[in-house]
Design a binder for these strands. Sequence first.
DNA 1: CTGAAAGCGCTAACAG
DNA 2: CTGTTAGCGCTTTCAG
Lengths: 336, 336
Amino acid sequence: MGQAVTIQDVAKLAGVSPATVSRVINGNGVVARHLADRVRAAVDTLDYRPNAVARSLRRKSAAVWQLIISDIENPFFTSMVRGVEDVAHAAGCSVVLCNADEDLGKERRYIEVALAERMSGVILSPASEEESEVEPLLRRGIPVVTVDRTLAERPATVHSVVTDNHRGAQLATAELLGAGYKSVACITGPLRVTTAQGRLAGYRSALASAGVRPRPELVRVADYKETGGRDAMLSLLELADPPEAVFVANNRMTIGALAAARQRSVSIPGDLGLVGFDDMTWSALTCCPLTTIAQPTYDVGASAARLLLEGPPGPSRPAKTVVLQPTLVVRGSSRR
Amino acid sequence: MGQAVTIQDVAKLAGVSPATVSRVINGNGVVARHLADRVRAAVDTLDYRPNAVARSLRRKSAAVWQLIISDIENPFFTSMVRGVEDVAHAAGCSVVLCNADEDLGKERRYIEVALAERMSGVILSPASEEESEVEPLLRRGIPVVTVDRTLAERPATVHSVVTDNHRGAQLATAELLGAGYKSVACITGPLRVTTAQGRLAGYRSALASAGVRPRPELVRVADYKETGGRDAMLSLLELADPPEAVFVANNRMTIGALAAARQRSVSIPGDLGLVGFDDMTWSALTCCPLTTIAQPTYDVGASAARLLLEGPPGPSRPAKTVVLQPTLVVRGSSRR
DNA sequence: CTGAAAGCGCTAACAG
DNA sequence: CTGTTAGCGCTTTCAG
């Protein structure tokens, strides 16, 4: 239960004041060469580690960023993490990751943690465009950047990074239409989330561009998880006039949709064309290799981190929205 | 940039001392009903949130656990997270997740963070049996539990939770042998990690039990990532006398191995039998549905969290190792 | 260039 | 039952 060694102990051993030790450690002020050397020696022999808690209390802010992701079981979010970490570490900040699990309650709880721990920045992929609450952070001067998704109320107060969901969905839908599938369904996510809205809108706009009459019964709003994708697909397949193809708006739902198709012995791409959103390491390995919309996940994270470093928007600096472009990866599932 | 409201402000508004406010908030000591009500009212009107940093400094420990996982892009680890979170939250602790990325340097860095932030516990899946350094934590009285993997040096000082890797690998290998594949290869992970050792040993022991002569050239040590799995598989396929089947010791390498087989037009299970370690949501969707060894991921996390709650081992309480059993999930890839 | 002193916001003795 | 007091370990004026 070793007592932690404090700055006092170091000061005593080096024969200087705590203030001098602090200056040496933080590179503030100017300290005579020989004293600085003595301090460093003392730090080494005592194996001193500054107490980050005391430092944060004094400085009124911790060198820690909080990254609140919507779903830790979704590889899109986890592969974004690396982008955030690399930029944060280069800037001397630690990143702590929290999993809100698409649950507004958990998200709120983690925002409380950020507040309580005086974190110096928060990167959030909000569980809801309308209901996610970032004001308390902003009021305390903690900068917020949203990733992947945006917030309805705060266009002027938070930066954000998104991919062009509308365009991604258009690419996906147009690919299926171009391959000769006459009717295309869409399984999107919860509409409280901006990505689900954008992907649905892009789907509709692609139908319109192609002069295809939209059939509302071909749209399903699911939960961005496997079971939701499966149920949505099963219900589409039960239609009297089932769709010839389907655009599935995220990776986890694509898994469910594929499972449903297999369960009903619907073969892809023969009986049904399919394009999924998010490319995965295993996308080429499914029974019929998957055509997908790939997002630049690392860049999404890295851009968000850079925006956080820029500091919050203000009167002179308007809030930025960085929009990254997705790409269509054509494999077998969209071409019969 | 709202000034944070402090316990002093609340005390003033409620007409009591800060100590009384503290007692009400923490439920310590006894406070007269009417005073407590006034305090709670003041807390509400001021929207007061205790400063967790100051509290940690005073209490010399934060109500935060750190979970250091080896690889955030590996679904095994991410699905373990939920188990940890649920137990932690029930115990009033927050969990921060850190990604060591199988890198001893990053792992060390995050251990420094735990030390600096005076976290109240650490759950770690060590990047190396020998080189991962937890002593500094133990010296400061911070309890450590290892998950998924164990440490060589500290059997008596840290609890751990693992799955029975030896048995899992035996099940996998025996399944392939039982299906009639004469020669079975093994692609395992970095041998500095105990899971990789255990799975290799289990593979060997299954060969021995079946009276199959081991062929050392059929063993590959890779990196637990897709590229390593792919390269290992390619090199196995190039052998003059290639194996009839392969046991791949983790999920990410299985993806690489499947990609390699496809690239070389090796068909599964006809040309090659395959069993992977870790079951995934998409395991049934690959070209040939995958036979896998499934681990109880949620329980691994939850058990680790419960061990952390129990407190560190001591003279009276020996270190525990909880061993959970994996199960064989038979699908197409192991039966020709 | 260096040290003394004050205080970040909270909790835990200790009095009353 | 409640208030006063004294720090937790650090950084940062302010003197010297």
